[in-house]
Nucleic acid binder design. Sequence first.
DNA 1: GCTTGACAAGAAGATATCTTCCTATAAGGT
DNA 2: ACCTTATAGGAAGATATCTTCTTGTCAAGC
Lengths: 124, 124
Amino acid sequence: MRRKPGQLLDLEAQILAVAVDVLVGGDSPEFHGFGLAKRIADREGSQRLTSHGTLYKALGRLEDAGLLSSRWEDHEVAEAAGRPRRRLYRVSSAGQAAIALHVSASQPALDDRTAAFGQGIEPA
Amino acid sequence: MRRKPGQLLDLEAQILAVAVDVLVGGDSPEFHGFGLAKRIADREGSQRLTSHGTLYKALGRLEDAGLLSSRWEDHEVAEAAGRPRRRLYRVSSAGQAAIALHVSASQPALDDRTAAFGQGIEPA
DNA sequence: GCTTGACAAGAAGATATCTTCCTATAAGGT
DNA sequence: ACCTTATAGGAAGATATCTTCTTGTCAAGC
């Protein structure tokens, strides 16, 4: 697919959006791949639009790009919960900036929206 | 299936046989569930005759009965290998006795075998 | 001999991460 | 305009343990 440098793909933007969401939303500022997959699947209304492999690769890319950072969950926590260890991700400030930029870039200009509204056409 | 007390089921006997095998065979006297499943599947010539759930339940039974003991693999080892932690099992002496008894009990008596041979009927 | 109930078998799936392999597509060069 | 190629997408599966739910069967009691 060869990407234009500095551009976010749809999936990556979704991931960052969720990442910012958990960051702002209280609780813990961290999330893990599996939970992310469920969130996206839920949001998408469908059954796992994104396969796990694809998601983990995207997470790796984002981390390589410095938009996410990760650490392994403590042994004790995973064991107490009786499940495999998770890898916990967190948005970096660069990541926050990237998603903000992406959103504003993909938002139609205000004039266009106003014009559409004037003609009874609601923006998606 | 309600078992006669003190009797080994087929699957359990197979597990113990493998356990004794690794014990005697050198290397490490320990084995883990997943590897066991592969061994049994290989031996059985077929594709996973025993589902994983069934196998882990049988392992639990054998441990409860004191025929096997188990411990969790060290974190470091699993991590170095890049895989989930294994649970390592080992036959106890009671287990060794049990499988020995089971084998001798299911073996047809010598007289019977000789008699069968005498009539040209090979024992299964 | 017949019924009943305990318990094993197996399917299915939850939990989590990551790799390999093939395909499809868009970005960039000519 | 066209072709090449890097790379994203997705399927599939490896790695490991364990739970839940249903079905089936054997042993024991009557």
